Amino acid sequence: MISYNWSDSKVLAHKINDRLSDAGYQVWIDKEHMKGDMYEMMSRAVNNAHVVLMFTSSNYERSANCQSEANYAKDLKKKIIPIRVQKGYEPNPKIGMMTAGLLYCDFSKGSFDDNFNQLLHEIGQSDEILMIGGY
């Protein structure tokens, strides 16, 4: 699952979606904002995820939906891989506590390919299903 904020991470999330699909991962992505019961869909996505890619930014911190996803993923003890998408961003204490000790994939600098290879390494070589949604 990729938990991201539409206003600053949509393009990157879609690019990562395409590359993960090309790498053989089964990926679901919310390309047009979710329809129907958003909270039901969010909870189902987190429940079914083996890995949560948390696209951290100031906008992510301000989004109630992103915070709900992050908290729920942490409560369910899902594997979280933090993705830095905003140059110079430092997480607030709440996000900082959720990601303490975890290795960030920093897509705010460096080459996309190098960062994507690091991300693949973090995800591991499994057939996990990644759910991708944005708010």
Rank of each mutant, 00 (worst) to 15 (best):
Y4N: 05
N5S: 11
W6Y: 00
W6K: 11
V11N: 12
A13H: 07
A13W: 01
K15P: 07
N17V: 06
S21K: 15
S21V: 02
A23R: 08
V27L: 02
K31S: 10
E32F: 04
E32T: 10
D37G: 05
M38S: 10
M38A: 06
Y39S: 07
E40A: 15
M42E: 12
S43I: 10
R44N: 14
A45R: 10
A45H: 12
V46E: 11
N48S: 14
A49W: 02
A49Q: 07
A49N: 10
L53C: 05
T56N: 11
S57C: 07
S58G: 08
S58L: 04
N59I: 01
N59Q: 13
Y60E: 03
E61N: 08
R62Q: 14
S63Q: 01
C66E: 06
Q67C: 09
D75A: 14
K79T: 02
V85F: 01
K87M: 11
G88I: 01
Y89E: 09
K94T: 14
M98S: 03
M98K: 09
L102N: 09
L102R: 12
L103V: 08
C105Y: 01
F107A: 05
K109I: 03
S111P: 04
D113T: 08
N115F: 04
F116Y: 13
L119R: 02
L120H: 00
G124N: 10
S126W: 10
D127L: 03
D127N: 13
I129C: 08
L130Y: 02
M131T: 00
I132P: 01
